[in-house]
Amino acid sequence: MNIGIDMMGGDYAPSEAVKGIALYLNDDSKTCLIYCIGNEAEIQPLLDSCGIAGDPRIKVVHAPQAIGYNEHPTKALKEKPDSSIGIGFHLLSTGKIQAFISAGNTGAMLVGAMYTIKTVEGVLRPTIPTLVPKLNGTNGLLLDVGLNADCKPEQLNQFAILGSAYASNVLQIDNPKIALLNVGAEAEKGNLLCQATYPLLKDNEAINFVGNIESRDLFKDQADVIVCDGFTGNIVLKMAESIYEIAAERQLENDAFLSRFHYENYGGTPILGIDKPVIIGHGISNDRAFSNMIIQAEQMIASDFCAKIKSIFKA
């Protein structure tokens, strides 16, 4: 199992990525080969300082260029083929690695995923989810959370299929319950998008649709996968992030429930609907976040998630 990491992506690159790899490799049972893609002159001393320079599970791939946060994604990928993101996608597309992780330029990661790796045949639009902590200690899934601000009912219907597959294969949730985020529980409630999406989800035999869910019930156990357009989902995501910030300000961040809102617990966001596993991390990702992103990539590879998505949409 080979996993590539963009070592130059993130506010604290490459130090936190190296620390995250060290944290991951603390478990001697881990056998993944980690491709560290970035400036070797910067990476090697950090590997030495963390005591993992000679670990056979690490391979450094030199990338002399890096894509900054403010660069235009498409232009940067075209003009910087030797960037850590560019080389990462090349390794992924040629099969040298089986998953690619970055906390760098989100736009470049999305462009690379959609145009270098390609969308699974039959998928109208890829989507990005986020994990939602539930009061009972488990996690749910919310999608889309920002990739598709404007959606059609057919796209939301596919998001439900993608989310259901991720919940069952990666999160190991048996027969996940799917719900549509709406302003009321009744089938006729909501805007035109929700009203048109509801019957599609209800008639979709590939999912376990349980109806509408209101935002006040988001953290309860009424649904495992909650579907919405990316505009709505991103607002919910930012609100959830603010909950942890408020908890931290009030010194409540160690609360059993509120602590689970911290981004580092989940690592990153997978792009669902593309041919191979690609995970995008938060720009402020720390060592724990990077370690969890590697574990997340490992789970996606082990479950053969992308192949199962291809099979679902082929059928």
Rank of each mutant, 00 (worst) to 15 (best):
G9L: 11
Y115C: 07
D275E: 15
G112R: 07
N169D: 07
L192C: 00
E16S: 12
K152F: 10
I279M: 05
L218N: 05
L141A: 09
S29D: 12
L33V: 15
N136M: 11
I161C: 11
L91N: 04
I235P: 04
I279V: 13
F100S: 09
S303K: 02
L131I: 11
H262E: 15
G68Y: 05
P64S: 06
L218Q: 03
N265T: 13
A185C: 09
L237P: 02
S215T: 09
K19M: 04
T127P: 04
L272K: 10
N39I: 15
A149E: 05
I21F: 03
G51N: 10
K310Y: 01
L181V: 04
K152G: 03
K80S: 10
I21G: 02
D304I: 02
L147A: 14
A206Q: 13
N139K: 08
I295V: 13
E214V: 11
L147F: 06
T130W: 09
Y198W: 14
Y69D: 14
V227E: 10
A149S: 13
N39Y: 09
A240K: 05
E42F: 09
C228V: 00
G230N: 10
M300Q: 15
E245I: 12
L47F: 03
A149L: 14
H262N: 15
A307Y: 09
Q299K: 15
C32E: 15
H62Y: 02
R216C: 01
A223H: 02
A256Y: 11
E241H: 12
T138H: 11
E298D: 15
V123F: 04
Y244V: 14
T127M: 13
S291P: 06
L237G: 08
A103P: 05
A297T: 11
A297V: 06
E253F: 13
Q251Y: 10
A302M: 04
A302L: 11
D229H: 02
N39Q: 15
N157A: 11
Y198S: 09
F313N: 04
N208I: 00
G88D: 06
N204R: 02
G104Q: 01
R125H: 11
T269P: 02
N175V: 02
I274L: 04
V145P: 00
G146P: 00
I5G: 00
